[in-house]
Structures are given as C-alpha cells and as structure tokens.
Amino acid sequence: MSNFLKLIYNEVLKIFIKKSTWIMFALLAIILVGFAFLNNTLVEEYTKDNWKDKLHQENMELQKELDEAKEGSDDFFKEFALSEIERNNYHIEHDIMPLQNGAWSFAHDGSTILGLVSMFTIIIAAGIVANEFNHGTIKLLLIRPIQRSTILLSKYLTVLLFGLFTTIILLFLSLGIGAIFFGIEEMPQIVLEQQDGFTHVSLIKETILKYSYYFVNVIIFATLAFMISVLFRSNALAIGVSIFLLLTGGAIVQFLSDREWAKYILFANTNLKQYANGSPPFEGMTLSFSITVLAVYYLIFITLTWFSFTKRDVAGT
C-alpha cells in the first residue's frame, strides 16, 4: 500500500471501529423500513388495466370541484387542480403509467432523507480532527515523518469518501428495501413539471441524478463542519453550527429573499438540481453563477482550514 493510502486506511479504520458509526447506518435502514411499511398501507395502487380510467375519473372530479369553486376564491387550489389535470393528461397522452410502488420509486422517494447523509457526514467531519485533540492523540499523530498538510488531506478525503459511501449506501439500501417490499419496476418513467410544461425521463436516471446532485450539498456541509472543527478544535461546536445551518439554511435564504445580496448566501446555491428542473430562488441566477459562488466559499473554507491546521502550535491539551 502506498504511504498515503495507509493514512486513509488509518482514518477509515478509526471511523468504522466505533459503534456509533454503525448506528448511523442502522438508523438509515430502520427509517427506510418504516417508510416501506407506511407506503404499503397508504398508497393506492394503479393497475395496468385501470390506470387510464382512474386518471380520467380523477380529472373529472377535479374539474367538477373547479367549476363549483367560486370565482376569485382559493387560487392555490385552482392552480393545483389545473396542474394535476394537465399532468394526468400528459400521462394518458404519452401512455406513461403513474409511478407505482417499486424499488426505483422507493429509492426516488428515499432521497427525501438525503439530509441525514449530510448530517452523518457532518458528525464524522466534526470529529475527525477535533477528537484527536480531545483524546490528546494529535501529539502522537503529528510527530511522524509526514507533513501536517498530508495528514490533513488524508482526513479530509476520508470525510468525503464517507459522504460518498453513505450516499451510495442510502441509494442501495432504499433500492434493496424497496425491492423486498414492492419488487422492481420495468423501465419506469417519471413525469416532471418544468417551466415550459411537462416532460418525462427515465426514473432510474432521475433517481441517480438526484443523489448525485445532492452530493454537492454533502461536500459543502462536510467542508464547513471540518473547517469549524479545525479552527476551534471543538467537536460539539462544529456539529452544532453545521447541523443548525443544514436545517435552517433554506429558511435563512427565504427570510432574506427580498435582499439583493441574498443570492450570494451559500445555502441559496447548494442545490444545483434547481437548474436542471425546478426554478432557482432568485431572478437571474444561473448554474455557472452558483458554481462560482460555491467555489469561492469552498476555497475560503479550505484555505482557513489549511492555515489553521498547518501553522498553529499544538499547545496544552
């Protein structure tokens, strides 16, 4: 093994030798199984023979409610009903059956708990340096014939690997659990609403895209937590601040949405999928704008982390 790979191996070992890490994965599995049970009981099933009739029927009911609704009242419902009717018509016209329970649609829904992947990666990122300081083992780690920056890099890459691994684990877990509960769909298609009407894509492609785009979020929050833990050498502070921002980032952007500069906030830019389908929160935001903003934040985070770790004294514990 090359020397650098041995460093990564050490870091991975220190993560997976702890029970708490395994509890995270167990938690993912438990939540997914819970979802599967809920889906099993809640969701109505379309069948190959009756789905078109059912959609027609739904449309008629929606139309009836629309006609009965008074002029000017409840705009929100009207918008929703019209869009549903249009969606149903799209399904019928293109002969695309609405999504049924199955491994891929379950995995697609499973993306709603991708936030947990960010959270778990934050916890690992916050501990990987700070715990060495807490245990005092940082002293024995840094007195080896290895530059501090190399040690830092091995730890940072390990965090990213953990995030990637956990993202993939969530995908496979939800596929697996979905397959066990519902079986696997054949060539599933998903209908998506875009700014200029509806379109359809392969559900498999869409699901993988969703997980992939989300990995940007994982990287950003992991890097943030990693930075805080290196700057303040505190595990708890890094976890607290990062998870707080993970949970409230969207709300912060919303709250400040009337300000011109709000689009420069990190959390307005972490969801790059909004450019593929969906709409960005601010007028005039583009994919390259967001990538530039992310790159600037990222460079600042990495530079601060690097300076703090390589230049500061390791004084009393």
Binding site: N10, L13, I17, T137, L140, I143, R144, T317
Partner: peptide, 29 residues
C-alpha cells in the same frame, strides 16, 4: 522527526482501540 520517538506529557492513545491496533496504526505512518 523520522529519527525521533517521543511521549509528550501523558501517553494518550486511542481508547477505543486495542493496544495492538494502536501500534499498528502508528506503524502505518
């Protein structure tokens, strides 16, 4: 530093690993 071995203040090692795992860990460096 490659010619130095040291204990600085208390001998602080990874409590959640065995003695052997600790030594293997440093040996990999």
């Amino acid at each position: 530093i490659e010619k130095v071995g040291a204990i600085v203040e208390n001998p602080e090692l990874y409590p959640y690993m065995t003695g052997w795992q600790n030594l293997k860990h440093y040996a990999r460096m």
